[in-house]
Amino acid sequence: MPGWPSAPPPPAGDGLRWELSDVAELPGMREELRRSEVVDGLADLRDRLVLVLDEMASNALRHGGGHVEAAVRRTGDALLVAVSDGAAATPPTPAVDRDPSEGGLGLYLIAELSSAHGWYVDGDGKTVWAVLPTR
């Protein structure tokens, strides 16, 4: 997996949205998602969804620069996780030839847990997204 595909996400409806400026906000975001009606009845998906959102948001905060927005929205029989940051020129790039103990494997994990993933540039920012089926 040399890089993530550059592609727009599928259309999505309502859901949850967060504006983030610091990794210290991530525990509150995770808790809000766990308690949300978006994941009601999806106990088997909840932990994977929280993990994907947390990995994507923490990557954006650590490497993306600028304002970070995260969202989880419904799209048919799936949930779309999308995180935007201010680093339009920096595509999501999975770690290569790195000891797993040094981190950097989150993008591989997200790709494994999702049925589709990608990223796109919009103005001065980029959005990284992943789709997790609800069935």
Results as ranks from 00 to 15, higher is better:
P92H: 07
G66N: 01
S114A: 14
W119L: 09
P5T: 07
V50I: 13
E25H: 05
L107D: 00
S36I: 08
G86E: 04
H117R: 10
V128A: 11
A87M: 06
G15M: 02
E31W: 09
Y120A: 01
D85W: 01
P94D: 01
D40K: 07
L61W: 08
A111Y: 07
A130W: 04
N59W: 09
A89I: 07
R48P: 01
D22A: 13
R98L: 10
L113E: 08
E55P: 01
D77T: 14
H67M: 12
G118Q: 02
P10C: 02
D77S: 15
V23Q: 12
S36V: 01
L105Y: 15
V96Y: 10
R17C: 09
E102Q: 15
V72Q: 00
V96R: 12
A87P: 06
V83E: 01
A95T: 10
L33E: 08
A95H: 06
L113P: 05
S36M: 06
L132G: 06
L42M: 08
G66E: 02
P8M: 03
L53I: 10
L105K: 11
L79C: 04
L80V: 05
S21V: 15
A116C: 08
G86D: 06
R74H: 13
L61H: 08
R48Y: 04
A7K: 14
Y120E: 06
P9E: 03
G64V: 10
G118K: 02
G64I: 11
V68C: 10
P100E: 04
D77I: 08
